[in-house]
Nucleic acid binder design. Structure first.
Length: 605
DNA sequence: GTAGGGTTAG
């Protein structure tokens, strides 16, 4: 509405200034504005009526109106109509604007091949593409998943002198980022002669997509400090995954507050990224608050919230929300079902899991993909039904992938099944010889049953193949500063006090019945050394520091880059009991909410 | 007439 009004006022201003122009010219402008508003509102009937009037007035071929008419039909999903209109006139007589409109029309209707065919034809007719043409075609590269094609277009655009155009620069950053070519995206961004908010937002998004979250946050502050650019809601959406990844609740809250303060639109995109961020920060209550206040809830928003509950151990709430979503007539998509099956798996809800999996096609019209199968394998593996899981894999409609075997290998580690673990790991080492995780899991399986020679053999193999495992660490945010701890770390300036606090906590939990579970030490050392090593796992250092420095109210939140070990899990339950504090720990994919001696995961993770 | 946004198993 506002847009239409501003267009109308522009028209008035323009008309005033050019009062000596011919009447027909003023009318064609008027038609242009009206057509534009039909495109914006996608009002098909009004547009067709307008087209007829344009035809009667003899304006159809007007250099400004024809491209808009083409765009109108394409926007309303009638790209064939747009093509008919295009074919009505000799191609050589049509300007680049008309050609680009139809190219764009094909892309908007997800027909990238037709777009490229038309581009080829355009070049053959000697029509020179402009920056708009290149922007449009770069979008098509993302659809086709082809960074090579993007590179070709980049060199064509450079030759044609359009490479410094902002829209070409920004499209290039976007397409390279979307296709996983971070180096090229960065090269375009760094080499750009000018950058605007879109360039920064695209680069921040590229970092987030490629899981370069630190870079994402760094760019976000650099953009404001060095360029003085103010983020908008798209920038916020691009940086929120980074807040979630690091569990930086305060930063995430600041983003949320910024949206509200600047009155930026809180649409479904912003809504779902906020829900995800709060969930990843172990705060499902605030995630739900955002979810609950959204006017319009689409499938992605529902999916985010279901995942948010599941991630935080609230499996019943997750499944209840799934029911509610269906009652509201929202059709789940395949991601929703991945999330729901994963909730069943993590919550040990085997019966519900089977029921949902078996009804996927009939009830939701969704054919199971590899992700769904992986959830089922994980679900069976977790409850120790390893053989059933293996049979399930054999009976699958699809070829098992490394991820399927990986799911079951994880279960073999939990249930110390050496025989199956070995078999699977050998398959996996062939399928993905560069994935360090497989070596580590197999080595842990050997360690858990004391096969130290095999542990050593795998370590040597990893060294030979140049693979390293990422060292475990935990971190905590205190007063906007992040404190990172490695296992047995003594590098923190407050280290002495932290270890004193740990000793004190050790005494308290021992009185509450703690017995160290030394089987979780995967090293061939003496029993006493094992006990000592357990006490200084990184999450315990972070907890001790948190208890000393976090505000006295509210939960203490810690994030960790690996799974919490079984012994720490027991110890932390008791720490929550003796200190009467809620402790929230995020591991690689989910949360443990420790309260009064128990954990939200129900010891099942 | 152009460019940038949310959910996904292990």
């Amino acid at each position: 509405m506002i847009i239409t009004q501003s267009l109308q006022s522009n028209l008035l201003l323009g008309g005033g200034r050019k009062s000596n122009q011919k009447a027909s010219s003023a009318s064609s402008r008027e038609f242009g504005v009206l057509l534009q508003s039909c495109i914006k509102t996608k009002s098909f009937q009004n547009g067709v009526r307008l087209h007829n009037q344009i035809l009667e007035a003899g304006f159809e071929r007007n250099h400004d109106l024809l491209p808009r008419l083409v765009k109108f039909y394409a926007t309303c999903g009638c790209v064939e109509e747009a093509r008919k209109l295009f074919d009505k006139y000799p191609k050589r007589s049509l300007n680049v604007f008309v050609w680009t409109s139809l190219i764009n029309g094909y892309i908007e209707n997800e027909q990238p091949y037709q777009a490229f065919d038309l581009f080829r034809e355009m070049l053959e007719f000697g029509i020179k593409p402009d920056s708009f043409t290149f922007s449009a075609l770069l979008k098509a590269c993302a659809l086709l998943g082809s960074p090579e094609l993007a590179l070709q277009l980049q060199s064509l655009a450079t030759k044609a002198g359009h490479s410094s155009s902002l829209s070409v620069t920004n499209s290039l950053i976007h397409v390279y980022g979307s296709l996983g070519d971070f180096a090229s995206a960065l090269q375009v961004f760094d080499g750009a002669s000018s950058r605007d908010l879109v360039s920064w937002t695209s680069m921040i998004r590229s970092c987030s997509i490629l899981k370069k979250y630190a870079e994402s946050m760094e760019l976000f502050s650099k953009m404001q400090l060095e360029e003085g650019l103010k983020p908008n809601e798209l920038t916020i959406v691009s940086v929120l995954p980074a807040c979630g990844f690091f569990s930086f609740l305060r930063s995430g809250q600041a983003m949320h507050a910024y949206i509200i303060r600047r009155q930026l639109p809180l649409n479904s995109f912003v809504g779902s990224s906020l829900v995800s961020m709060y969930s990843q920060c172990g705060d499902p209550e605030d995630a739900f608050r955002v979810f609950d206040t959204m006017d319009e809830r689409n499938v992605v928003l529902w999916t985010s919230m279901i995942e948010g509950f599941a991630m935080n151990g609230q499996f019943d709430s997750a499944l209840k929300l799934f029911d509610q979503m269906r009652e509201k007539g929202i059709r789940p998509n395949y991601v929703t079902l991945v999330v729901v099956l994963c909730a069943c798996s993590h919550g040990g809800l085997v019966e519900q899991g089977w029921k949902i999996f078996n009804s996927m096609r009939e009830e939701f019209g969704i054919v199971a993909r590899v992700e769904h199968y992986a959830c089922m394998v994980d679900m069976l593996g977790r409850v120790g039904k390893l053989e059933e899981a293996e049979e399930f894999i054999e009976g699958m409609n699809i070829e098992p992938t490394a991820s399927i075997y990986g799911s079951l290998l994880g279960a073999c580690q939990v249930h110390s099944n050496v025989e199956l673990g070995e078999r699977l790991a050998n398959k996996l080492l062939e399928l993905e010889p560069d994935n360090a995780a497989n070596y580590v899991i197999l080595s842990n399986i050997y360690a858990s049953v004391g096969k130290w020679e095999d542990v050593q053999r795998l370590r040597d193999l990893m060294v030979d193949r140049g693979l390293t495992k990422s060292p475990g660490c935990s971190w905590i945010e205190i007063k906007n500063k992040t404190h990172v701890f490695g296992a047995h770390d003594r590098s923190h300036p407050d280290s002495d006090n932290i270890y004193r606090k740990l000793e004190d906590l050790g005494d308290q939990i021992a009185r509450a019945g703690y017995v160290p579970l030394t089987k979780f030490v995967l090293l061939d050392v003496e029993e006493a050394e094992k006990k000592r090593l357990l006490c200084s796992h990184s999450e315990r250092l972070a907890i001790a520091y948190g208890l000393m420095n976090a505000p006295s109210r509210g939960p203490i939140r810690i994030a960790k880059n690996l799974r919490v070990c079984g012994d720490c899990h027991e110890a932390i339950k008791l720490v929550s009991l003796v200190t009467r504090r809620e402790l929230v720990i995020r591991d690689t994919s989910r949360f443990h909410h420790f309260r009064e001696g128990s954990c939200s995961c129900g010891d099942y993770w």
